[in-house]
Design a binder for these strands. Structure first.
Lengths: 211, 211
DNA sequence: CTCCATTATTGACGATAGTCAATGATATGC
DNA sequence: GCATATCATTGACTATCGTCAATAATGGAG
């Protein structure tokens, strides 16, 4: 994006959105054995939106009502602790996030969600999701399966984090999400690994020159 | 349980199971607006079982097919890493666990589930769960909500673990799950906090005598 | 291109964690 | 109740991390 003017980004995103709209409709029709109108109704609840790098999607104190899927870009979740930013997640292409708790209990989230890059999201409000669940049990089934997968993924992340050292966690990112190291500033990656930027810098040094 | 003979434990568990059966049927009828027969069918898929402390529920290499709710007792999840036990979860009363991944993909789990205490579980095989979902969308709805809650809980645990130091994690357990400190051997708690038993011992000392 | 703000690296030092070994305390089985 | 295995604590030492401060590199804005 470095030398690309915003206008171009926007244009690029528009065609990307058009492509994804088509794909998504096809997937819906493929996975759901329901009427054409049903597909239309579900599809029309999905919104596509383009965001500029550095902007904020949600911040502490706000209720977060949407389920978001990343079509392109990167979203960072973090909160402030004693004035320090603690980065807890990086969401990238094909990952989704939501806060059912915030929506159903009408409670503000305790974290920020910001865009690390120019980003394109598809999103559905959780209240329409719930309405559609009632109307189309098959849709609920598909989403439930997705939630089960997500649950298992977070369990694994927790297990992995709990049972490894900072250096192992860094190697783990190197292996499983190598793109992150390019996409994300190092001080954000550091707190994502549960350490300080200085420590991460030294870990990288240790790895590159294993004397 | 120390001075209780196994026969007594069993008897105690039998009456506990009887009580929970009644309660659970009532809850089903309360939360699900479906026919009497539907309630019966769902209820009959739930099994109640009593386990002795120290025994194993699942071990690496086995496929884990049940969704388990703890009525009484404590289950520990751990795996071996370089010959070391890494404890990753303690499940206690009213908590549930399952591995949808293991069941649906027919893949063995990579961890042990063992009983830290004499334990009573109610369980449903995930395949019957899925069958019942098809037949009773309302049942799926209720379970889906439970899974959403669980997902959010694990996200929060991960955030909490990532953004705190060993001593903060210990204080966190002291605050949120004080019973664990009594119920669970310290070396297991240590690896649950991501540290060695020696370090936990020193942390406890630091806290008790803050010179 | 230059300037300036932000980010990354390095150094020095104290605090904490890991490791290995020894000793105490506790539980468990016989 | 005693013997033994397991678990918890302590000590000594090393490695790593956090902190604070200084310097170097990077990247945007104008």
């Amino acid at each position: 994006m470095k030398t690309t003017r915003q206008k171009d980004v926007f244009k690029e995103h528009q065609s990307l959105i058009a492509r994804h709209k088509k794909e998504m409709k096809n997937s819906l029709a493929e996975y759901l054995q329901i009427s054409e109108e049903g597909i239309e109704e579900i599809f029309s609840a999905i919104h596509f939106k383009s965001y500029k790098s550095g902007t904020v999607l949600v911040e502490p104190g706000e209720v977060f009502n949407d389920c978001c899927l990343i079509l392109k870009g990167c979203v960072r979740q973090y909160h402030l602790q004693d004035g320090e930013e603690k980065t807890t997640f990086f969401f990238t292409e094909d990952q989704w996030f939501a806060s059912y708790y915030s929506t159903t209990q009408n409670k503000p989230v305790p974290y920020y969600l910001t865009f690390v890059e120019d980003t394109v999201l598809s999103m559905m409000s959780i209240s329409s999701e719930y309405d559609l669940f009632k109307k189309y049990p098959e849709f609920e089934s598909v989403c439930r399966t997705g939630i089960e997968e997500q649950l298992e993924k977070y369990q694994e992340m927790l297990v992995s984090f709990m049972s490894s050292s900072p250096i192992q966690r860094y190697m783990n990112v190197l292996e499983n999400r190598p793109d992150l190291i390019q996409r994300v500033p190092q001080y954000q990656l550091a707190s994502y690994l549960g350490i300080t930027p200085e420590s991460l810098s030294r870990i990288r040094k240790r790895i590159s020159s294993p004397k």
